[in-house]
Design a binder for these strands. Structure first.
Length: 204
DNA sequence: CCGGTGATATCCT
DNA sequence: GGATATCACCGGC
């Protein structure tokens, strides 16, 4: 477990430091551990791409609290995605976990992700990763307690880290787009594939 | 490329 | 209260 000293650092320091870390859950008595290969930083204070940008709401309240908790949100009608709350209390920053490799509980992860054809696809993408770990909305606000939810830093951090713009974040103009806030392990097959934004038709 | 799907925030009476 | 726009996605074609 990282002490509070790491997660309380500014999110742009925390995010790349989480590459190679293991996020582990015990849900329904089943242990699954994922080694993180891709993350994105969100900084609520001045980040238009963050859910926390417009201030606390019932959904985003946890991000305004202390570091070391999960923020899990529901998206596109069917997916859960998990963030690790970071930064000093009140800062409302978080790291979205976007991709990883299942390193423990492979059979459980496979059973939770029957659509995955290959093991590298099990946790490649934020919703897939959350699904592997059995995370849903009931875990939003849950502390990283070292038991039900645990986070372990790598003994040897990954050597080659890439960075770039965040995926699919709209409305994040200006300063937010000027800095690469996405970090991944260079060349790793469990990093999600970038999809260019699709212009969606209006419903009618 | 496209559709499916539902919670949320923010507008409007 | 209702309507609407938005959404950090996945899977299948």
């Amino acid at each position: 477990m990282p002490g509070p000293e790491l997660l309380s650092r500014p999110v742009l320091e925390v995010a790349p430091a989480l590459l190679g870390a293991r996020l582990r859950t015990v849900v329904d008595g089943e242990l699954v551990s994922v080694e993180l290969t891709e993350v994105e930083a969100y900084d609520g204070a001045k980040d238009p791409g963050s859910h926390a940008y417009r201030g606390p709401t019932p959904r985003t309240r946890v991000m305004f609290g202390p570091a070391g908790h999960l923020y899990v949100y529901f998206s596109y009608g069917m997916h859960w995605c998990a963030n690790i709350v970071t930064g000093s209390d009140g800062r409302a920053s978080a790291v979205l976990v976007r991709g990883g490799r299942v390193v423990e509980g492979l059979e459980v992860a496979r059973s939770r992700r029957p659509a995955a054809k290959r093991d590298v696809d099990l946790a490649r993408g934020p919703a897939r990763l959350a699904s592997c770990l059995g995370l849903d909305g009931s875990f939003s606000g849950h502390p990283i307690d070292g038991h039900t939810v645990a986070l372990e830093l790598p003994e040897v951090p990954p050597g080659d880290i890439s960075s770039g713009p965040r995926v699919g974040v709209s409305g994040a103009g200006g300063d937010a787009e000027a800095h690469p806030w996405r970090f991944w392990v260079t060349g790793d097959p469990t990093v999600s594939t970038y999809r260019a934004a699709v212009v969606r038709k209006r419903r009618g």
